[in-house]
Design a binder for these strands. Structure first.
Lengths: 219, 219
DNA sequence: AGGGAACCGTACCGTACGGTACCTTTAGGA
DNA sequence: TCCTAAAGGTACCGTACGGTACGGTTCCCT
């Protein structure tokens, strides 16, 4: 809760309250449950106010995404000196956080909404979601990878490609499966460990990590 | 109703024709464009026939998935002897095919539909889609991996985990991005190459492939 | 105290969908 | 040739949504 003066749609407290209710409705019942009448009833506001504040239904959806993005601020990591161990630790924390975020109720509901809408509206919502929701976590990962490379702990030519590799190792098809309604993983930490071990085997400077995959130690 | 032992719903030619039109409508305009009236008009059939054949709208959607799954049969691979090179080639073909399938119009439209529906119906469609659409390609990959291991070309403890690793390396977040409306890759082949190189670096028996990532040769 | 803006609650409108009913048309079997 | 079953065409019903209009209420500003 710091006074962050970044770029802001910045809604009033009342509007934030309404948006929170809107998210709740969306999470509980999908986009069919998010009707203007229903939201007005649930949030104790009038439909007229909704249209005055957000323009139309699409404006409301966009506002919900912006609102959620405003809530999920990610910490900038301290500038400690990286060791092989601390890098691995940071990568695993990142992996766990990523899995946590992707499997969150609100994230899933918003992604489902944007996916469902993406055929008709020229994927406006999808773009918004990727922009707002992904930029933070992407930056964090890229900073981490850059620091790793600068410290001589990681090797790669294309940071973007390496990040996509890391992302794929962490998430695989879990995101889509969860979007389709499958329950998430039982153990995010284990998945994070394995993904990071594989990533270090591919892009780590030391080769010994290459054996980690075969041993696959339980934690 | 002759003794075809396999488990397919098996629609009549007329019904398949209607389902094809339904898929066309879905691809073009998303689920809002797939209305019973619209489908009846587009397919020159009556709404009453639609309800007689498929029960209700959900039945129609399920039938569309089954119909599409019936179309996408994957070849069982011949039992040639595997070498390191042929394994790599097979893996790359698999990767390209996977990317091709996932970025297909109909696949994307059906996945969008199932994702949008997955909040309300207990993810019935999502299960159907994963079941019908994924089983074929999963089996093909697992057979390939098993053959690779048996030939001493691949090393892993858990075939399922290794397959998920391969899948993540190939697809990363591409599927979700495409579902959200982003255009697909320009070059599937390049992505397939890189993913397979990384996979072999992790699970291949020969270590020399580990260097492939750093050199990252052009095609 | 008074005036005005913002907002709530509700009633209303047009539309479009899912689903049903009814009638007409075609095709095949005796 | 006639009869029956399947399927096309269409009109219809109930419902629910997005969006608008309007009267009443709260609250702030001066």
């Amino acid at each position: 809760m710091i006074g962050d003066a970044s770029q802001m749609p910045e809604f009033t407290p009342r509007q934030n309250e309404v948006l929170e209710q809107a998210l709740r409705l969306l999470v509980q019942g999908g986009d069919k449950a998010l009707t203007t009448s229903g939201l007005a009833r649930a949030a104790n506001c009038s439909k007229e106010s909704l249209y005055k504040w957000f323009g139309d239904r699409d404006g409301l959806l966009a506002a919900m995404i912006a609102h959620q993005a405003n809530k999920v601020r990610t910490f900038e990591r301290g500038k400690e000196r990286l060791t092989a161990e601390s890098l691995r630790e940071h990568l695993e924390v990142f992996a766990r956080d990523l899995l946590e975020v992707l499997s969150g109720d609100i994230s899933l509901a918003l992604n489902r909404l944007a996916v469902g809408q993406s055929g008709r509206d020229g994927s406006k919502l999808g773009k918004l979601l990727l922009e707002h929701g992904r930029r933070q976590i992407d930056r964090r990962a890229m900073a981490l990878m850059d620091a790793g490379k600068r410290a001589g702990l990681l090797r790669f030519d294309d940071a973007d490609a390496a990040y996509h590799t890391l992302y794929g190792l962490i998430v695989s098809d879990l995101h889509v499966r969860m979007l389709l309604g499958e329950p998430g993983l039982k153990d995010n930490a284990r998945q994070a460990e394995r993904a990071v071990a594989a990533f270090l085997a591919l892009h780590g400077a030391r080769q010994e990590s290459g054996e980690a995959m075969r041993l696959s130690p339980g934690r």
